[in-house]
Amino acid sequence: MSGFFGPLDSEGRVPANQQTRVAAFLISAHGALARQFAFTLPMKLDTAWQTELNAQLYREAEIVSLLMRATAWVPDLALGYMVASWETAWLPAPIDGVADRSLAGAIHLATLAHAIHAGIRPAALLPVNAKADDPFVMALRRIEFESGRLLQGQILFLKGPELVPLRDAVSAALEKRHAAVRKLWREALESVGITFTNDAER
């Protein structure tokens, strides 16, 4: 097993089965964020962080659209049950110490988005000889770039004044989300022959 995509074909393209499995995982994760942003946003924006949510909604939708078009899809019989387990993992979980349901929902969404954007680095899996102008390669690099930008929005909210009294609860929820996302991402990669040489995330 290797810590990178491959073996690449003669033109430097990522194998289609690896593209399919990784793209399906990323679409599930970013699609879940897009749906949850859409349901969380009120009809009228009242706060600065809600404005940021609106922007993030469209970024997540763009990521999903890009992956759907840039991936060389092949049949994958295992995706049925894998997607079901991924979709379950993105659902909101109770946050200890947060009674306000609206605020708890916002914290859940911010911690999930933070874990996905910070913990999943698909472009780091590309070997140096990957074909630079291949659509899938370009898509992964674009997603990683956008994730870095989107991450700033989650950080601003999670460290904002509204959550200062709930710092311990927020930190615990964030830690749990990161652990869960890392586990799912690692399992998805290992299922197509990609593994990490240590516990550092790609």
Rank of each mutant, 00 (worst) to 15 (best):
F5W: 00
E11L: 14
V14H: 04
A16M: 06
Q19L: 04
V22E: 01
A24E: 05
A24T: 06
L33Y: 12
A38P: 14
F39S: 15
L41C: 08
L45H: 15
T47I: 12
A48Q: 02
A48G: 03
E52M: 11
Q56P: 10
Q56F: 13
Q56V: 11
E60V: 10
L66K: 01
L67K: 08
R69Q: 12
T71R: 11
W86N: 09
T88S: 04
L91K: 15
P94F: 03
D96E: 04
S102F: 03
G105T: 14
G105W: 13
H108N: 14
L112T: 04
A115I: 04
R121H: 11
A130I: 13
A132P: 04
P135W: 14
M138L: 01
R142S: 02
I143G: 14
E144S: 11
G153I: 05
K159E: 02
G160L: 05
L163E: 02
L163P: 08
V164M: 13
V164S: 13
A169T: 03
A169Y: 05
A169G: 04
L174I: 09
K176A: 13
A179Y: 06
W185L: 03
R186P: 02
L189W: 06
S191D: 02
I194Q: 02
N198Q: 02
N198G: 09
R202N: 10
